[in-house]
């Protein structure tokens, strides 16, 4: 968190300082949300309408971003691919965050034995790279959108659990918690009214950045062939398919890559901005 130190004056003086990068990021994320909710507002082309004889056409006026290996419009597929990508980022982060908060709180507040047990479990999970862990889960429970979501979510639990625990340990000894306890508040009330909100707030912001991370993991899984089965439009599988044709149809790889990069960069930029502002305010 400390690696990204922005002078507080800069972040607080937002109304006076126009930041084009951040505005573009917001604009892009709004565009993504529209594409995820109502893709047909943005394109009238069916992303599944295949016509083999139209395959591998370069970008032109009738197919702005070209056509893919089945003669489908790449732009339409990109737009319809937003929903699974965002869903992947949001739902899996929610799963990771939810489970991470429960485990982190239990570890931070529970007796030493519980703390030890939970943290060793987290250490074991951390020993696996995210992607590998997700792959293991998919291998055990089979393929499918929901399994993939859960797999990516579970893979992100350790990160959140550790952060929640660390925050909890800090907050636990804070004067206001001590005061609440001394005043005789019920233990559950102390946990949920005082510890949880204060421990989780910085983590919620970090979770925004985690969304970007999980979108990449989801795309990587779909690139490896563990995503939705064809012909569903998905950025990762579009990339996987396109890489075979790099030398003769560059647009098959270029557009999904650009889409993934811009999405992740935009979400991360917004997350960092929130983070910087929350740190600035707290100072």
């Amino acid at each position: 968190m400390s690696t990204y130190a922005i002078p507080w004056r800069f972040t607080l003086a937002l109304p006076n300082t126009f930041r084009p990068g951040l505005s573009l990021a917001w604009l892009f994320v709004i565009g993504l949300s529209i594409a995820a909710l109502v893709p047909h507002w943005l394109t009238g082309i069916d992303p599944l309408a295949a016509a083999a004889r139209n395959a591998y056409l370069p970008p032109s006026s009738s197919h702005w971003l070209g056509t893919d290996e089945n003669g489908r419009d790449v732009l339409a597929r990109l737009i319809h691919g937003v929903r699974p990508s965002l869903l992947m980022g949001l739902v899996s982060t929610a799963i990771g965050l939810g489970a991470g908060i429960i485990l982190g709180l239990a570890a931070g507040l529970g007796p030493r034995l519980v703390d030890g047990a939970i943290m060793r479990l987290i250490d074991v999970l951390l020993a696996f790279p995210d992607l590998l862990l997700a792959l293991v889960i998919i291998t055990f429970w089979g393929q499918g959108l929901w399994i993939t979501l859960i797999a990516v979510g579970v893979a992100s639990i350790p990160r959140f659990a550790r952060m929640v625990r660390a925050q909890t340990l800090v907050v636990r000894d804070a004067p206001y918690v001590e005061a609440a306890t001394t005043l005789g508040r019920h233990r559950a009330a102390v946990v949920f009214r005082h510890v949880l909100p204060n421990a989780v707030k910085p983590i919620l912001i970090l979770a925004t950045i985690g969304i970007g991370h999980n979108i990449i993991t989801g795309a990587a899984l779909s690139f490896l062939g563990f995503g939705a089965s064809p012909p569903a439009p998905e950025w990762g599988s579009m990339l996987a398919m396109g890489r075979n044709y790099l030398a003769n149809a560059w647009w098959l790889v270029a557009w999904p890559s650009v889409a993934i990069i811009l999405t992740v960069v935009s979400i991360t930029a917004i997350g960092r901005d929130w983070l910087a502002r929350s740190e600035g305010k707290s100072r």
């Binding site: 604009l27 892009f28 565009g31 507002w41 943005l42 702005w64 971003l65 990109l78 889409a259 811009l262």
Partner: peptide
């Protein structure tokens, strides 16, 4: 930056 076209020229 073709993708920013989406939000602007969507309809």
């Amino acid at each position: 930056m073709p993708i920013n076209h989406w939000s602007r020229f969507g309809l």
